[in-house]
Design a protein around this nucleic acid. Structure first.
Lengths: 192, 192
DNA sequence: ACCATAGTATACAGACTAGTATACTATGAA
DNA sequence: TTCATAGTATACTAGTCTGTATACTATGGT
């Protein structure tokens, strides 16, 4: 059986290269070379480049959401604060060195067809992010957690695009100010 | 001198193919073939594929903003209504047959480097869109047109991403409801 | 009528693409 | 010790990529 550690090694390197260089523009030769592995080994773990891309997207989803949730919990002490901390977390991400936009938005751009397996993984990632927002909204006592989480999702996506396309480093804080309006009204309404 | 009509022909076809298939994944052979033109003619008009991509993005900006503004004016009778009509216009776009997301977000995904000429054209397009929003906001009597246009931009981007990645066909109307909050408060405040 | 030129058709160069084949090595378990 | 296997190294196939070269044709201005 091919070793799981080699597999992880390949996925990790592929993740970086795909994120920075794009999916179609990054070749498997380069991935194998940078991962310190031969192409034969790569193809022993993944039967095609498409499968590797899928594995990369699934891993990115796992890593990204874990780190996102950890940072939200670090930056917000209670559920109410954590709803705002979503945007402080985004802010840190946007201002990090290796920010190249959202990998799932980028992948959806290259695999535009809605039925493409890669596109489906992207949609699923967004669904899971929104589900997390919904949990926070519910715990914070929002009147309509579904609506609030959807609203915060729109703002998060908008901020991410502005940060990447226009290089707006303050997009996170701008979205936070907008988000407060929705958070306050959703929670004050519930308390009344 | 190479004929302008042939040039337009090539750009038009390239625009469709790049939009639906992506930039790196679409070859110049296919573009030349579909445009009913030989590669030699294509390279008489554009000295490289990169230049063709730039020409396509500039043309897309021109066409998109013209059509966008026409539709906003059709769907809103006065500046105040037109601010909301931004999102009805998006709604129509999202529900059109050939919707594949925002071409400039897609291009920024493939040409991630902020210094890339293509990326710069994308940023410029976003700036011009926001400028248009600002004009509407000012004419509608908004207290702070800069802030309002920025807020509407975030919502428009968020809606576009949700519509493309998640296939949410109602993203336009959802963003419209959110936008009303900002529009109302910006204009009522000004009237007070 | 002449001639530059904008085009066609086709072939080519050279590099890169995904993916496979062959031969060898090192390692760990029975 | 033996033997399967996970790996390396390297070469290859067959196709596609951008971009160029050669030869021919049609057209419009002088």
């Amino acid at each position: 059986m091919p070793s799981p550690s080699k597999r992880d090694q390949i996925v990790d390197v592929a993740l970086d290269l795909f994120y920075q260089g794009g999916f179609n523009a990054t070749g498997v030769d380069k991935i194998a070379l940078e991962a310190g592995v031969t192409k034969k080994t790569l193809y022993a773990h993944f039967k095609s480049k498409d499968e590797l891309i899928l594995a990369v997207l699934r891993r990115r989803d796992e890593i990204f959401r874990n780190q996102f949730m950890r940072n939200v919990e670090r930056l917000g002490k209670n559920p109410r604060q954590r709803l705002e901390a979503i945007f402080d977390t985004l802010d840190e991400w946007f201002n990090g060195k290796k920010f190249c936009g959202c990998m799932f938005i980028n992948a959806s751009a290259e695999f535009s067809d809605q039925g493409n397996p890669c596109h489906l993984v992207c949609a699923e990632h967004k669904r899971l992010m929104q589900e997390y927002f919904r949990d926070l909204a519910e715990k914070a006592g929002a009147q309509d957690p579904d609506s609030l989480s959807e609203e915060l999702m729109f703002l998060a996506e908008g901020a991410t695009v502005q940060a990447h396309v226009c290089g707006d480093k303050r997009a996170g804080q701008k979205a936070k100010r907008m988000a407060r309006l929705f958070i306050d009204s959703a929670i004050n309404l519930a308390g009344a």
